[in-house]
Design a protein around this nucleic acid. Structure first.
Lengths: 208, 208
DNA sequence: ATTTACTGAGTAACCGCTCAGTCAGGGTAT
DNA sequence: ATACCCTGACTGAGCGGTTACTCAGTAAAT
């Protein structure tokens, strides 16, 4: 079920160096992909912004798509890290859900360019790597599934087993739309207003 | 406010012929863009699938991006057409909203590849044309804004002016996510199940 | 004879990726 | 201490291939 991420081969021996150089690559590539898109960014640009030559770039990756994969994986990794900081125990499951939602919205807002990047460029990944990235996206909704299930079990949330999965996806999408509909939403609402209205929508369904 | 769509210049004189050929171009290009993506589709492929040579293709457009623009515009046009069929008067505003939502879901489902195409390739459009396409997307949510406002005014829907805009966007996004999250949703739910859960989510917020 | 639509080989530019070669650091034989 | 070689990271000109777009020419209709 749970597929391990494909390790990208490298010509370089020193694992620490690989990690350091790949961090450079990711840092340079995210910025370029955000501002120009994956297809319009050249490998030459990536290597230059990383601070070394194309030759060296290809010592650490095998193809341009590998860079996109590294970038997507890094974004998800950071996202999950922030989520784990935000999802903490609270007095009641309802309070926990509330704070998880508003925390999630803040994370989305902080990382909006990166969230958007994944939405827009995921399709350019080779099939296997795309599957892995989508799985990571599923893991993120998993955090909300867990809270919902707990609320169902302790009786504080009004939801049936069949709807949990969809409701968790709804929470994630209602968060992420803050980025991919920002051309409309961010003109009309502050993040706080947005969070409040969306939270009320979700909770009104869950609290009878 | 309302920006007219930029007319794409053509070398050909006969306006009827322009229309006919552009329909051919759109029909061929949609299929190619859906299966290969915009960037991986070549202009040669588009012209061949359209049934004429590259030279001729460039008599009807000025750049490859123009084709993407034609395609996006056509999809929105067809979407709006279907929406107008679906949004009809009903006994009450609540009934009207109900049937509009379920009708919208059916349209999304029918056009899912095309809806997804717009989501994924819109960013490849030149700025001006992108603005126009986003405006069209706003027009679609406008249909739901109208219903919501009417419900607010006749007292049948519980919503305030400030939330109407966001609620309309929510309806559209909760519909469109059926396509861009289909890797998760369409494995677990039928369109009918999906529609029912999402409708209940929206209506529970609106009906006190 | 002129206009109009159409053709497709050609062009200039670009891009992902490679590979022959450089160089610094360190081990080793003398 | 010196000379020599080896290893591993790095370099960037260049290769092979592709692509968006053009234009000189054809054919048919008026």
């Amino acid at each position: 079920m749970n597929q391990k991420r494909k390790a990208i081969p490298s010509m370089v021996k020193d694992p620490m160096l690989i990690q350091r150089r790949r961090e450079q690559i990711i840092e340079a590539a995210v910025e370029l992909f955000i501002s120009k898109g994956f297809h319009k960014t050249t490998t030459r640009e990536i290597s230059q912004s990383s601070g070394f030559s194309i030759g060296t770039l290809y010592e650490y990756i095998e193809s341009k798509e590998d860079v996109l994969y590294l970038v997507c994986d890094d974004i998800h990794r950071k996202m999950e890290e922030r989520l784990r900081e935000i999802i903490v125990e609270e007095a009641t499951t309802v309070h926990m859900l509330r704070s998880a939602i508003s925390g999630f919205m803040r994370v989305i807002d902080e990382m909006q360019d990166r969230v958007l990047l994944i939405y827009q460029e995921i399709k350019s990944l080779p099939k296997e790597q795309m599957t892995y990235v989508l799985q990571k996206e599923q893991e993120i909704t998993g955090y909300f599934e867990e809270i919902l299930r707990r609320g169902m079990e302790d009786g504080s949330l009004h939801i049936d087993e069949k709807s949990i999965f969809l409701m968790a996806h709804n929470i994630v999408v209602l968060g992420e739309m803050w980025t991919f509909r920002r051309w409309a939403l961010q003109k009309k609402y502050t993040l706080e207003q947005y969070t409040e209205i969306q939270t009320s929508l979700i909770l009104r369904e869950l609290i009878p």
